[in-house]
Structures are given as structure tokens and as C-alpha cells.
Simulated assay, not measured.
Amino acid sequence: MTRTALTRDDVLDAAAALVRQLGPQALTMRKLAAELGTAVTSIYWHVGNRESLLDALVERTVHEMGAIRPAGRTPAQRIVSVARRLHRELRERPHLIAMVHERGLTDRMFLPAQQALVHEVHAAGLRGARAAEVVRSVQYQVVGFVLVERNRDRAPVQSPARGELWDSRTAEHDPALARALSRPADPEKLFETSVRALVSALLEPPARTREADPN
């Protein structure tokens, strides 16, 4: 059977898969050629040397992260949808995101998602510094959540275990709370709950204080 001609996208797809699975240190031209069933010289012809390949992967990641689009009927729903998609994209490609960061392109990578958030924040009636605060708060919530998840995944086995730490006493005599906290958290549900609460609070009109009338 005749093999379909290798393309630049084929090379980048295979390289991205290797980086996602094993990290950039595992990406060698020889290993990539073996994955594709081709000669190393063919890889060089399509993407140049390894550094050029890494640059291409970074540019591709930045481009893919720019494809985030909001969904929903209200500004709040659309902001949550952007946060949800951003969270998923960051979590699914940690090694590629790290490469983007190392090359000083993090701000550029986040710009399209920030612009989508700006549009929805404007639709919610917020402007200026207040709008910027909402955009940054959502972004920091997403990035912070991903970092906590990654650190949790890398953490050693805990001793004492969570179930040994939580009882009626440590939960202030709330046994239902103790049982809940002794079980592993559901990251998806926790993220959804926290980001919805954050967005709801951020989009609320600021409380208006009235100066006391001395008369």
C-alpha cells in the first residue's frame, strides 16, 4: 500500500502528541521520524531543525488557543463558557503551554480569550477599570485552578489520609461536612461552581453608598 505523502501538518501533529504525552525533552528528530515511519531528513525538510520545530509548535498552540469562542444566552453564561473552554485547553496541553510561556508569548496566547471576555463584560454593562477587573479575575481563576490541579496530581500520597483528618470534631460537629471533605473533590464540579459564583458576583452592580445627610 502506498503511503500518503507526509505533510508539515502531519509532522506537527505527531510532534505535538509526543510533547503532550512525554514533554518537550522527549521530542527528538529521530523519535519523531520513527513515529511517522519516515527518514529524519524528511522531518528536517518539512520543519527545519528541532528549535524551528519547537517554535512552530508554540505558534500553533498560540493559534489554537485563539479559537476559543463564547456560547450561551446571557453575558454571564458566555463568560463562564469561555472560562470553561480555557480551563480545558490549558489542562489538556500543559507541556505545550509551558513552552509558550518559556518563549515569552503567554500574554499573546491569552489575548483572544481576554478579548472574548471584554466583549461579554461590555455586554453586561461594565466599562473601564471595573471591566478590566472582571476580565483579569476570570483569567486568574482559571489559571490558578489549573495550577492547583497540576500540583495535586504531582503530590505524594498524603499521610495521614484525608479520611483520617476529617471527623465530627475537626468539622465542628458537622458529620455530613466531615464525610464530604473526607472524599476526593470532583474538580470539574468544583471548577464549575467556583467560576459561576465568581462571575455572578463580579457582574453584580456595585453597591451604592449614600452619604449621611447632616440635616
Rank of each mutant, 00 (worst) to 15 (best):
R183V: 00
D213R: 08
G104Y: 07
R169H: 07
R91A: 12
T61H: 06
R154L: 09
A67M: 09
G104D: 08
R85Y: 00
P160M: 03
G104W: 11
A16K: 04
V19M: 04
V148Y: 09
R50M: 03
R154F: 03
L57N: 09
L177Y: 04
V148A: 13
L198K: 01
P184N: 02
E89N: 09
F145K: 05
P205S: 03
E120T: 14
L57K: 11
I43A: 03
R8Q: 11
T28I: 02
P160F: 01
R208S: 01
P187H: 06
V138D: 06
F145E: 06
E64Q: 12
A185H: 07
S52C: 08
K31Q: 14
G66S: 14
E188T: 04
L53Y: 12
S168I: 08
T193V: 10
R60E: 04
A16P: 07
R154S: 13
G23F: 04
R73W: 11
M1S: 14
A39F: 04
P70E: 10
L198A: 07
A76L: 05
E92Y: 00
A76I: 00
G66I: 15
H101L: 06
A185K: 06
V11Y: 13
V157L: 13
M1K: 11
T74E: 12
L90W: 02
R73H: 15
L86N: 01
L181R: 13
V62S: 06
L18D: 01
A161T: 15
R3P: 09
D153E: 15
R196N: 14
V146F: 02
V134M: 01
A197P: 01
A185G: 12
A26Q: 04
R136E: 10
D186K: 01
L111Y: 08
I68D: 03
M29I: 07
S168Y: 05
H87Y: 02
G37A: 08
E120C: 04
A34V: 12
A129R: 14
A98D: 09
M1N: 10
V82F: 05
V58G: 04
M65D: 11
A16I: 07
V148G: 14
R179E: 15
R69Y: 06
G163N: 09
I79Y: 06
T28H: 04
V195H: 02
A124W: 06
D13N: 09
P205Y: 03
R136M: 14
L105C: 03
R179N: 10
H63I: 14
T209F: 02
V134K: 05
H101W: 01
L32Q: 01
A39E: 13
A26N: 05
T209Y: 01
E192H: 00
T209K: 00
P94H: 08
P75M: 13
V58S: 09
E102K: 01
A201S: 08
A17H: 15
A116W: 04
L32R: 02
R136K: 06
G125L: 05
D107V: 10
L36P: 08
T2H: 13
V142W: 04
Q77I: 15
V157T: 10
T193M: 09
G48F: 10
L147F: 00
V82K: 05
M65E: 11
A212G: 15
A155M: 10
L90T: 06
L111T: 12
S52G: 14
A116E: 10
S42V: 06
T28D: 00
P206F: 00
S81F: 02
A17N: 04
A39T: 08
G125H: 03
G23P: 13
S81T: 11
F191G: 11
D174E: 13
L27M: 03
